[in-house]
Each structure stands twice: as C-alpha cells, then as structure tokens.
Amino acid sequence: MKIVVAVKQVAALDEEFELLDDGLGVDPDFLEWSLNEWDDFSLEAALLLTEGAGGDDHEVVVVTVGDEEAEEGLRGCLAKGAHRAVRVWDESLERADTLSVARVLAAAIERESPDLVLCGVQSSDAVNGATGVAVAGYLDLAHVAVVKALEFDAASGTATVQRELEGGVIEVVKVRTPALLTIQTGINEPRYATLRAIKQAGEKPLAVVGLSDVGLDEAAVSAAAGSRLASMAPPEKGGGAQMLEGSPDEIAARIVEIVKERLVG
C-alpha cells in the first residue's frame, strides 16, 4: 500500500507583528513556523494504516509545496516514520492561492500513483479547508472530507470512514481506493519521534523538485489560480470587549462580581 500525505508548514503570528509595506502579508520576522496541527493526525493515520497492514511492502510519502522553511516539518514526518519526502517549490508560488497549490500538489501526487491520499481538513494559517478536495478534483479521485475515523479493508480496497458533521453527528460512508480523504483532529493520538529517529531522519530521502519536474510551468499554475490577494489588514474593531485591568486578584474579583450580577439579572 502506498499513501501520500500532503503536509504544510504553517505560520503563527507573534503577539506583536508588522505587515509588509505592500500590505499583502506579514513581515516574516514576526512569524513562527510549525507543522499544521491537522497534518500530524493525517500522518499518524497513514502510519497506523501501513503498520497495521502487515508485510513490508508499504510506503508513506509526505509531500509539501513550500520553501526551505518547510523542510523542518518534512524532517519531523520522516522522524515519525514516513519513508520519503518531496518538497516542490518555485519562487512564483510565494503567494499562491489554494487552487494553485492544489494544482501543484496534484501534479506531484499523480507521479506517485498512491492508493490513498491524506490531507488535513484545514491549515491553521490560511484556513481554506479546500486544498485536499481541490486536489481530488484535479486528479478525479473519489474523496471524503472531514474524516474522524478510518478503517481500511485491503482485500477489497475499501475504506469505511466516519464523516464528522455539524453538531458532532457522524455519517458513516464507504469509499473504494484510490481515494483522497481529509483528516480531522482527534482521529488518533499522534506519536512523538524518538531522539534516535530524529537523528536518523537526516538520512531518509528528501527530494526537492521544481515545477518542471512535475510537468508544470509558471503559466499553468497561474492559470489555475482562483483568486488574487488585494489587501490584508487587522479586522475593524467592533464594540469589542470591556477590558478588565489591574492585578490578577483584582481581575478575579471583578469576574466574580460580574458573574453574580449577571446570573441574578
């Protein structure tokens, strides 16, 4: 069984940050990078599936579209047990929207011919919630979004999955592979890498490829774009909260007062 897991290195804002002069992004000095929370769960799901399947004819390949910053995330995945990593990058992808990224991912994944493709439900910085299913669209793969339980029957190539709906309601559906699933947090307990595995991960293959290596060029990617960023700014502050000032004890006393007042009223 071969599983491709699409993973993304995401940025979180420092408590204080500055926007770039062109207003189209955040000054990278104020960003902190880590692997997208959802992708920890989808990698774990892939590892559990291949480890549970018996035999050693399995491969988990992690793929990312990202600059050098993303390699740390890929190394982390290799340390946890992924066999191989692929990083696709081109300068022109700097501000790529979700469809352009999906287009590139689709091209890279197509080359791998996997049985299963796993993506996260969403990435915490862009919050598109769309890249996985867009990849399925490009590749014409069967797909299920927001999966919170997954069983796979290798003999029939059928996955039985739980879609998590609003209000926690579950829909159980079956899908035949090859298929793409987007994985929800809580589906499993992501493992930690051992120190030894982290050291050894340096020796596992990490291929860095460009657009032409996956059969694309800048024009094809920009033709896929679904939107163009016009501006980025802090949200307008509405009425906002009335802020409680003072020492923690003073704040606590005010909270107790407010609660009492509001519960009686």
Binding site: L99, A130, V133, A134, G137, H143, V144, V146, R163, T182
Partner: peptide, 8 residues
C-alpha cells in the same frame, strides 16, 4: 467542503 473545491 466535500464538493465545492473539486468543482472550482
């Protein structure tokens, strides 16, 4: 989320 990105 399960179908719209594929259509787009």
């Amino acid at each position: 989320l399960g179908f719209a990105p594929a259509v787009a």
